[in-house]
Design a protein around this nucleic acid. Structure first.
Length: 271
DNA sequence: AGCACTGTTTACAT
DNA sequence: TATGTAAACAGTGC
């Protein structure tokens, strides 16, 4: 489910509860979630203490006293911090037990989520973070030239390029539509037709929209429930995604597929 | 009932 | 190398 603002919201909630807890056991009920040898994962993690929780793009990074757990929620991954007997259903796939009678439950209806253990020295030099792009929230000063060069090197629709996490990371299907509307750029336009100014607008809109979405704890749409039991509120600020009418020119919004993803945009305002 | 969707990423084919 | 497609999986809505 989550894009950057939703993952950041999860991080902020979890960090309040989990820092300084020692992992006493890990129960893996569905082994596909763990993207490495399960026994190696368990032996790497059990006995260690969570010292911090970071985020890069849509990845959560649990910093342990030694090493890290990288976690990606993909479409529907959720964490719940509850007493050991707090939840039990067929979608709970991984359980981290702590030394205080509480556990961190990972629930994932579609089982797409992934977790992997990484030593500190390989965290950003190996997959999945090896080729990750810049995070608009964590990057203090965005190098527009670098982003421009990457964007114009590609001949696909600009929307497709922005969904590629190796250039700008954190945007997903909803926020890409919002960013392109804010930047007044038609999502079908080829990536290599972007001007330097277009790229600046895209970067600035990404920072602005993702920041505001974090402020409102992310977006909750359709029947999805939040990763927290708390519903995000940014859906009330969406300008195009799931909308029918352009808020600026009042014309009917387009809704079609780009690279298989539903795309909302205003043909009149986005050029 | 059956099919087409779904806030993601990656392996594989071309 | 670049790009498009299918797959991982389960639930919902038409």
């Amino acid at each position: 489910m989550p894009e950057l603002p939703e993952v950041e919201t999860v991080r902020r909630v979890l960090i309040k509860d989990l820092v300084n807890l020692k992992i006493t056991d890990v129960i893996i009920k569905y082994d596909g979630i763990i993207d490495m040898d399960n026994d190696l994962f368990k032996s790497s993690v059990i006995g260690k203490t969570i010292k911090n929780i970071d985020r890069y793009g849509k990845y959560l990074i649990f910093n342990l006293n030694e090493g890290n757990i990288i976690s990606h929620l993909r479409m529907e991954g959720k964490y719940f911090y509850l007493p050991n007997d707090g939840i039990d259903n067929k979608h709970i796939h991984v359980i981290y037990k702590f030394d205080n009678g509480y556990s961190l439950f990972y629930q994932d209806v579609r089982k797409f989520g992934k977790m992997i253990y990484k030593e500190n020295n390989e965290l950003f030099s190996t997959n999945p973070l090896k080729n990750i792009g810049i995070d608009p929230i964590l990057t203090k000063k965005i190098d527009y030239r670098l982003i421009y060069d990457k964007i114009v090197s590609r001949n696909v629709a600009i929307k497709t390029t922005l969904l590629d996490q190796s250039i700008i990371t954190g945007l997903g299907n909803i926020y890409v539509d919002e960013v392109l509307f804010e930047a007044k750029i038609n999502p079908h336009r080829p990536s290599n037709s972007m001007s330097f100014e277009d790229v600046k607008h895209i970067c600035d809109a990404s920072v602005e929209i993702l920041s505001k979405a974090i402020e409102y704890k992310g977006t909750t749409i359709r029947s999805y429930t939040s990763s927290l039991g708390v519903e995000g509120q940014y859906q009330q600020f969406l300008k195009v995604h799931t909308k029918k009418i352009c808020s600026i020119c009042k014309s009917t919004l387009n809704c079609d597929k780009i690279n298989g993803r539903t795309t909302y945009y205003c043909e009149n305002c986005e050029r």
